[in-house]
Nucleic acid binder design. Structure first.
Length: 647
RNA sequence: GCCGGCGUAGCUCAGUGGUAGAGCAGCUGAUUCGUAAUCAGCAGGUCGUCGGUUCAAUCCCGACCGCCGGCUCCA
């Protein structure tokens, strides 16, 4: 993929026309099945299910009089889900035939695909997947009907001999009657609905195997999961595979190496990032922007140490909730010190370093604070999940009457910062009280309401993420969407009544009495490492001018222009820009290509003609040719783009 | 941390029970060139680490380290 500039976003999903038709059968239709109605209407070939009075069901179900029927086609979102779910059943059937000893568990449709978890002695190999897929194609070709059956739980139990997982699932179903789906010799406990027959299963492909805990609980047995993808048409499947390729090309780990942005090496340790000069430029620009904007927004910028007495985290409660995710304490002269996993206690101590008046509030301390967390080895992932990272952290100390406005303002500020980095699309979540929490219900309700009110006042849609709050308070999470429509959690705004209490953070009210302050914890980019990784993937390494590690490559046509090229580089640098000259003994095309591959926004060609006229001939990343212009004119152009943070 | 896969030159990857190759990158030389790769030569690896099997291990086995895909987790 060439420079991202100007190219349209790649959609992660494709939408085909879904001409679901609504029909209101008269009395004559009553008593027939949906499939019969479909035949009558000429929809039997296209419909795979029906929405009857809003409920999706199999075509084999009988039609009730006066029902509102809508045909569900494969391209309908519900249709795709049914398709995938049915494909999962086909896969399970194939596995059972090839590996009779495999125990079946569950196999739902998921975004872009499906999976089925099996309990097997030895996990499937890639060769097994090929065989399974072949068998699946045979099953599809045979077009076995999916037959829905109903049974009492008692009856059903007998139907799954030697299948302990099905038994466990049955035991957990509250209803007395359960539905089962029979397809060929394969029977599964299933809510449905399904396609009428396996012949209707669309284009599919088995992707990979993975371990997955039974019921998603790490205390349970590890099962073998097979992931597959399925679409209504081959075209969509191919498009999906193409997007997967695109995602691979944009992988920040790959681009990070290619563009020499960062590395993580065995010698230093997993999850610990080395920022190379080029990556460091981007980070410095990010940080400079951040500091400037925070100063403007009324924040005080502070610094704090990397270790502190463990006692701090005992007080904050983090040792109770996160000790296993903290590095081991360090013994210093008999005292336990802790590599800091977060910054809040430091900012609280700064707050507490003197008496605070109600007039002083709000106080906003911001810090690019580097923290260390002992993330499990299996979760580390490039820049996106690391063990040492820098948070763009801030802690706000407020009076109760300031809470609502502050959150409201903060939301604006957050969205402004995200927009500056090119993120216009996001999903917002309000995470509420978790099962294990600290503090009082009263405070939790206050905090949740404050967050909710701010979101409602702002008028932006949000979803509730029940039980996903932090132990000390609820939070608003903003998940940004990148160029490929993928979501990344970066920004978080957390209201905390708990820590001010634990650390006794107070202010003197207008009546002279001490009052408890309220805290907001917030990070906008979240972690600089992670945000940078997302940026790399968002722009596919082709950073806009203001962020680009090198903004212009100066490319002399022959060595005769090297002296002039050096002048151009010097002029650009004097103008505050990042420019490099390519004085190597190579042909112009070679240097242009190199500049393009390095995703430098501009290549400035200087040959005999330019040297004579004191011009540069800019070529934009991507190939667009600009007319020759004086150096100053180009610098003005660049300045404009950098200030606007466009291009 | 758990399940599976993988680890050969800086990068991308071939390869074999008898101590290793290609392309790109690098270096040297020639070429002085107008918008995505000029030509030639050279150099580069105790085949992740440690142990075992074997006359012989990069190859087979084991442990460890790391990476990749998931699961769990993410203050």
């Amino acid at each position: 993929m060439q420079g991202v500039t100007g190219s349209s976003p790649v959609s992660p999903t494709i939408s085909l026309p879904r001409t679901a038709r609504i029909t209101k059968p008269q009395g004559v239709c009553a008593g027939m099945t949906l499939l019969e109605l479909a035949r009558k209407e000429g929809k039997a070939k296209v419909a795979i299910a029906a929405r009857v009075d809003g409920v999706v069901m199999d075509l084999a179900r009988p039609l009730s009089d006066g029902a509102k029927v809508e045909w569900v086609l494969p391209a309908d979102p519900d249709g795709v889900e049914i398709l995938r779910h049915s494909t999962a059943h086909v896969m399970a059937a194939a596995v059972k035939e090839l590996f009779p000893e495999a125990l079946i568990t569950i196999g739902p449709a998921i975004e872009n695909g499906f999976y089925y978890d099996f309990d097997v002695e030895t996990p499937f190999t890639p060769e097994d997947l090929v065989r399974i897929e072949e068998r699946m194609r045979e099953i599809v070709k045979a077009d076995h009907p999916f037959v829905r059956e109903e049974a009492t739980k008692e009856q059903a139990r007998v139907l799954f001999p030697g299948e302990p997982y099905k038994e466990e699932l049955l035991a957990d179903i509250p209803d007395e009657t359960v539905s089962l789906y029979r397809m060929g010799n394969f029977l599964d406990l299933c809510r449905g609905p399904h396609v009428p027959g396996t012949g209707r299963v669309g284009a599919f492909h088995l992707m990979n195997t993975a371990g997955a805990y039974w019921r998603g609980d790490s205390k349970n047995k590890m099962l073998t999961r097979i992931y597959g993808i399925a679409f209504a048409s081959k075209k969509e499947l191919d498009e999906h595979l193409r997007i997967l390729e695109e995602i691979k090309k944009r992988d920040h780990r790959k681009i990070g190496r290619e563009l020499d942005l960062f590395s993580v090496t065995d010698e230093i340790g997993p999850g610990l990032i080395l920022w190379h000069p080029k990556g460091s430029v981007v980070r410095r620009v990010m940080e400079d922007f951040w500091r400037e904007e925070h100063a403007k927004a009324g924040y005080d910028l502070v610094f704090s140490p990397h270790i502190a007495r463990l006692e701090l985290w005992r007080i904050s409660g983090h040792t109770d909730f996160y000790r296993q995710a903290m590095f081991s304490p360090i013994d210093i002269e008999g005292q336990e010190y802790q590599l800091k996993p977060m910054n809040c206690p430091f900012h609280i101590q700064i707050y507490k370093s003197r008496m605070r008046s109600y007039r002083d509030l709000p106080i906003r301390y911001a810090e690019l604070g580097t923290v260390y967390r002992y993330e499990p080895s299996g979760t580390l992932h490039g820049l996106l999940r690391v063990r040492g990272f820098t948070q763009d952290d801030a802690h706000l100390f407020l009076r109760p009457d300031q809470l609502d406005d502050e959150i409201f303002t903060l939301l604006d500020f957050t969205l402004f910062v995200l927009r500056a980095f090119g993120f216009e699309r996001y999903d917002i979540y309000l995470s509420t009280r978790p099962e294990k929490y600290a503090g009082t219900l009263e405070h939790w309700d206050l905090a949740e309401n404050a967050l909710r009110k701010a979101l409602e006042r702002k008028g932006i849609p949000f979803e509730i993420d029940p039980g996903e709050g932090v132990f000390y308070g609820p939070k608003i999470d903003i998940k940004i969407k990148d160029m490929l429509g993928r979501s990344w959690q970066c920004s978080t705004i957390q209201v905390d009544f708990n820590n001010p209490e634990r650390f006794d953070a107070t202010y003197v009210a207008d009546d002279g009495t001490p009052r408890r302050a309220i805290m907001i914890h917030r990070a906008l980019m979240g972690s600089l490492e992670r945000f940078f990784g997302v940026l790399v993937e968002h722009y596919a390494g082709a950073f806009p001018v203001w962020l680009a590690p090198v903004q212009a490559d100066v490319v002399p046509v022959t060595e005769k222009q090297n002296a002039f090229a050096r002048e151009v580089v010097a002029a650009l640098r004097a103008g505050g820009f990042r420019a490099e000259g390519d004085y190597r003994n190579e042909k112009l095309g070679y240097k242009i290509r190199e500049s393009q591959v390095n995703k430098v926004p501009y290549a400035l060609v200087v040959g005999e003609r330019e040297a004579e006229a004191q011009n540069v001939s800019p070529r934009r990343r991507g190939g667009e040719q600009l007319p020759p212009m004086p150096i100053e004119a180009f610098i003005e152009r660049l300045r404009g783009e950098a200030v606007n943070r466009t291009e």
